[in-house]
């Protein structure tokens, strides 16, 4: 595996502009989420009712102004990154493990396992992801869990299709013939080949989870009413859009940049890491988790 990464992938995808741009924005959001308490100029929850709806004053006390309750927009944006990261990271990784595991198991073992996973995934995707997330939230799940549970079938479907494209290739049959145990063949010959798709999908699903978190917060579901989230800020800003447009524009722009960064990252990875399997049409429709 390591040799595979070092020799075959590293040089090409690092050079891609899209990957760099995406990585940069993702790392920036991660960093901001971690050091938000240090970086933020104000307590994001502190209300200053004497200074509500301030406009942008880059050198002022509130660089990006204040909202209807006099809270610092910039600080709230920084703390909002935490909500996004805390949803996107576990949701995307969990969906990769669950969906990817089931998809690979189904494709590799075939037979009953494949049929069972197929039916489960079919029943699961009967609900549009956002609807499923709403139902899960109503049933008491957290937002991250809801995002993960609505994204795993995507991993399942895409990785299973990728695996089927790879499994027919001669080097897989050759490894089986040489007497490698089946599990080892999966690890040595198949997983490296589907890895690019899985990583690209990971970025896309993370983007979808960020969007889903924003949507649920916008609708004020699945969390405290006064939570720190970009979606909440959008909803608050929507009410005062003509008085202080920055309250809507700032979270909108941030939300878009983060999702765009993740999408570019996924795109770049897919474009440059591919093993150029002619028969594998990579999941171009993979933005399925992309919330509403």
């Amino acid at each position: 595996m390591m040799r595979f990464l070092r020799r075959y992938l590293w040089p090409r995808w690092v050079r891609s502009g899209r990957v760099l741009l995406g990585l940069l924005s993702v790392l920036a959001v991660l960093a901001i989420a971690v050091v938000a308490p240090v970086l933020a100029p104000h307590d994001p929850l502190a209300q200053d009712l004497s200074l509500t709806l301030r406009p942008i004053e880059l050198r002022g006390v509130y660089p990006l102004g204040t909202d209807g309750l006099g809270r610092c927009v910039l600080s709230r944006l920084m703390f909002g990154a935490r909500a996004a990261v805390l949803v996107a990271l576990p949701a995307a990784l969990g969906a990769l493990l669950l969906g990817g595991g089931l998809g690979l198991a189904a494709g590799w073992l075939g037979g009953r396992v494949e049929r069972a996973v197929g039916w489960l995934a079919a029943a699961w995707v009967a609900f549009p992801p956002v609807v499923l997330a709403l139902l899960l939230v109503a049933g008491g799940s957290g937002v991250a869990m809801a995002a993960m549970l609505s994204a795993w079938p995507l991993f399942c479907r895409v990785l299973r299709a990728e695996l089927q494209a790879v499994a027919g290739r001669g080097h897989v049959a050759a490894a089986l013939m040489l007497g490698f145990p089946r599990g080892q063949v999966l690890w040595r010959e198949v997983v490296p080949a589907v890895l690019p798709a899985a990583l690209a999908l990971l970025a896309w699903v993370a983007a979808g989870a960020v969007g889903l978190e924003a949507v649920l917060a916008f609708l004020d579901l699945g969390g405290a009413p006064d939570r720190l989230s970009w979606g909440r800020m959008l909803a608050d800003g929507w009410e005062v859009v003509f008085l202080a447009p920055i309250n809507l524009v700032a979270p909108g722009v941030v939300l878009f940049s983060v999702m765009a960064g993740l999408a570019l990252l996924g795109d770049g990875l897919r474009g440059t890491m591919g093993l150029a399997l002619p028969e594998a049409r990579l999941a171009d429709d993979a933005m399925a988790g992309d919330g509403p």
């Binding site: 969007g211 959008l234 939300l255 993740l262 570019l264 509403p292």
Partner: peptide
């Protein structure tokens, strides 16, 4: 198109 994909329907609707 990638950037377009990154605009969720929520933002389109607001806009």
């Amino acid at each position: 198109t990638t950037l377009m994909m990154a605009v969720p329907a929520l933002l389109w609707a607001l806009l």
